[in-house]
Design a protein around this nucleic acid. Structure first.
Lengths: 348, 348
DNA sequence: GATTAGCACTCAACAATCAAGAGTGCTAAC
DNA sequence: GTTAGCACTCTTGATTGTTGAGTGCTAATC
C-alpha cells in the first residue's frame, strides 16, 4: 500500500496530538481538533490502513491509536519541519551559555543544564575523547616522606594527577630525575600511543639505581594515563523524568535511572554514535535496553577536530523538531566559542 | 507514665518487626511471633500506653502500630545492642576495601559502593574539607598563544587546575615571573587564608609591567582556589530506593531524588553535622525537607586531623544496629589506611 | 468509487457494593 | 493485674455494573 497525502496528514495529526497529550488518539478527536476535511469514519479507515502499514499501534481494541517507532522515523525524516528558533529564543540561550564560558568542561556541563531546562528531559554532555591529546610533561611532586603526586600535563592544557603512597621513602633528587626521564620518554606522544609504550624496556637500562621507586610509580603512572583517557560525562535534569507520564510507574522510572547510572555503558553508546545530528528512535537503538527510549545527539568541535557530544534521552514521544533545533543551536555555539583561531572575530 | 521493662520489650519487638516487614504490626502478630509471655490483650493495653507516650502511631483505627521517631531514638540509645560484625564479614569488607586503596577520593568512593551494597540503601562519602590545606606552589603553564593553565598544588598533594583563555597573547617569561611571584605570596598559607589575601595590594607594587596579564589571571586564580575548596561528594546505590516499600510511590521517589540531587545543600548538611558516629532520625534532622529520612554518618580521619564523612540515608525504618557497625568498620579502616605514620605497622 | 452516517460491539476506567480479615478498645470475668 | 470476649472500625481485594471512548462494518449517499 502507498502512503498518500491524506494518510500523511492524518499521521502527522496523530503524532503531534500524541506528543503533546501522551494519550492514544481517536478518530473523533482528530476530526474535531484538526482541519482534515473528512469525517471521523474516513479517518478511521485511513487509520486502519496506517496500522496495517506499521505506523500505528493499538493498546487495546477500544482505545485510540499510538504512533510506532516507524511513524516517528517517517515524521522526523519527511514531515517534521526544521523548527527554526526565534531570535528571542536564540538570544536567551546564547546569553545563558556565554555567561559561563570558561573551561570547556564547565561550559558543556552548563549547556546540558540549559538543554534539560528547555526540553524538560534528561540531558547529557560528553567531553571530547582525549585519545589524541599530546603529552607535554610529567612531573612527580614530593608530598611527604612516603607520598608523591604524579602529574601529567598535555599540550592542550589538560592536567591529571594521582596521589600515591610508596612502600619505601624516596630521595627528592630521584624524583627529579625520574620526572625528567619520563618526560623525555613520553613527550610528544599521544595518550593512546603512550599507553602502548613498553615501560620496562624503556627504563631498566638507564635508571637501575632507582628501580624500586620506578616500579612503585610506573603502574600508577599508567593508571593516571588511563584516568586521563576517561571521557567526562555530565547529566542534568535527571528528576525531570518523574514528571513524564511514561515514567509515572515505579518500575519504568527505576529502569531509566539504572540505565543512566551505568555511566560506562552510556559513554560507550555515545562514543559509538555517528557524528553530527543523530536521532535514534526506540528499536533503532543498537542497545536493546534502550528500545523504549529515543536519543538525540549532536556534536560540537574544538578547532574542527576534537569532538564532543550533547543531547537528550527520553521516551520515544518527544518534540523532535523543537529539541533538535535547541541542541543544534547549543552545539554550534560551543563549537564557535572554542574555535582555536581565538575569540573576538564575529562574522569573518 | 514510666516506661517499664515489659513496655520496652514490646516496643523492641514492634520496632524489629516493623524494620523487617515495613507493615504496621498488631498485637496478635506480636504475641504469636515473639515470646513476650503475655496475651495479645495485655499487649494491646501496653501498646495503647506506648502510643500515649508518643512511641507509636496509628495509620488508621484498625491497623497495627508503627514506631515513631521517638521510638527509634529510644531504640538506638537504649535497646539496640552494638551488633559486632562477625570476623568473616569484617574480612570480606576489608578485603574489598583494600583491593582499591590508592587515592583517598577513589577509596572513599569505593567505600560508599561497598556500603550501599551491604545495606541496600543510598550511601554517600564526603572527602575532607580542604580549608586547612596549605598551598605549596602555583604554576601558570603555557598552552598556546592565548591559553594558559593555572595550577595550584597543596602540601598534601591536592592539585587543582583551570584552563584559561586570555584576551591578549602573553610572553612566556611573564608567566614564569608571575608563577614565582604568586607562589611567593601564597606559599604556606591555608586555602581559607589565601582567599582573603588582597590581590591588588600584593601585586600592583612590583609587577606593574604585566598588569594586564595579571588582571586576566587573578580572578581565575581565585576561582581555582574556590574550586579547590569544593568538597567532593560521592553517592552510590541511588537506585536502591526504588526497591524500598517506603518509596514505592512516584512522588516520594521523586522527592528523594531531588533531595539527593541538590549536592550543595546535602554537602552543607553533612558539613554541619557533629563528628563521630551520628544518627539523626526523622524530625531530628535540622532540615525540614529531611524529616522523613534518617541519616547515619561516621567520620574518618587523615592523620587525626582532616575529617571526612561516610554514611547512608534512607527511610526512618532502617537496621540501625547493623548499618552502624558497617559504617564504623569502614571509617576505621579508612582512617587506618590513611594514617600518615605510614603503612605496614599492624597492631602497635 | 469514495465518503459518510449509523450502529453494534469492545474494552478500560471508574464507582459502588460486599465480604473477609486484621486490628483496636472496652468490659467483665478470672 | 491479666485475659477472654465481643462489638466496632477500617483497609483490602474481589465482584459487578455503568459509562464513555473508540473501533469496524454495512448500507446509504454524493
Amino acid at each position: 500500500m502507498e502512503i498518500n497525502e491524506r494518510k500523511l496528514k492524518i499521521l502527522q495529526a496523530i503524532i503531534s496530538d500524541f506528543i503533546s497529550t501522551a494519550e492514544p488518539v481517536g478518530s473523533r478527536t482528530l476530526s474535531k481538533n484538526y482541519d482534515l476535511g473528512v469525517s471521523a469514519a474516513t479517518i478511521r479507515n485511513e487509520m486502519a490502513d496506517l496500522e496495517d502499514m506499521g505506523y500505528l499501534t493499538h493498546p487495546h481494541t477500544s482505545a485510540g491509536r499510538v504512533p510506532s517507532g516507524k511513524a516517528y522515523r517517517l515524521y522526523v525524516n519527511e514531515i517534521m519541519k526544521k523548527q527554526e528558533l526565534s531570535q528571542r529564543e536564540k538570544n536567551a540561550i546564547s546569553k545563558r551559555l556565554q555567561a559561563n564560558i570558561t573551561e570547556l568542561d564547565k561550559t558543556i556541563e552548563h549547556a546540558a543544564k540549559i538543554l534539560s531546562e528547555i526540553t524538560n528531559l534528561t540531558s547529557f554532555a560528553m567531553a571530547p575523547r582525549p585519545d589524541e591529546e599530546i603529552l607535554k610533561f610529567i612531573k612527580i611532586l614530593p608530598v611527604d616522606d612516603y607520598t608523591v603526586v604524579i602529574m601529567i600535563v598535555s599540550e592542550s592544557g589538560k592536567v591529571t594527577n594521582t596521589t600515591l603512597r610508596l612502600r619505601v621513602p624516596y630521595e627528592e633528587e630521584s624524583l627529579t630525575i625520574l620526572s625528567k626521564s619520563m618526560t623525555y620518554s613520553y613527550k610528544g606522544k599521544t595518550l593512546s600511543q603512550a599507553l602502548t609504550v613498553d615501560i620496562i624496556q624503556s627504563f631498566e637500562t638507564d635508571i637501575e639505581a632507582m628501580s624500586v621507586l620506578a616500579r612503585d610509580i610506573m603502574p600508577n603512572f599508567m593508571k593516571t594515563l588511563e584516568d586521563m583517557l576517561n571521557v567526562n560525562l555530565y547529566f542534568d535534569g535527571l528528576t525531570n523524568i518523574f514528571s513524564i507520564p511514561e515514567y509515572n510507574d515505579i518500575d519504568r522510572a527505576k529502569m531509566f535511572m539504572e540505565m543512566i547510572n551505568k555511566k560506562e555503558d552510556f559513554t560507550k553508546t555515545l562514543i559509538s554514535r555517528d557524528d553530527g545530528l543523530l536521532i535514534t528512535i526506540g528499536e533503532e537503538n543498537p542497545d536493546v535496553s534502550m528500545k523504549d527510549y529515543s536519543l538525540i545527539t549532536a556534536t560540537y568541535h574544538i578547532d574542527g577536530q576534537l569532538v564532543g557530544k550533547l543531547g537528550v534521552v527520553g521516551p520515544t514521544r518527544m518534540k523532535y523538531g523543537e529539541i533538535t533545533s535547541v541542541i543544534e543551536y547549543l552545539t554550534d555555539n560551543i563549537s564557535q566559542a572554542f574555535q582555536v583561531t581565538g575569540g573576538k572575530n564575529d562574522d569573518e
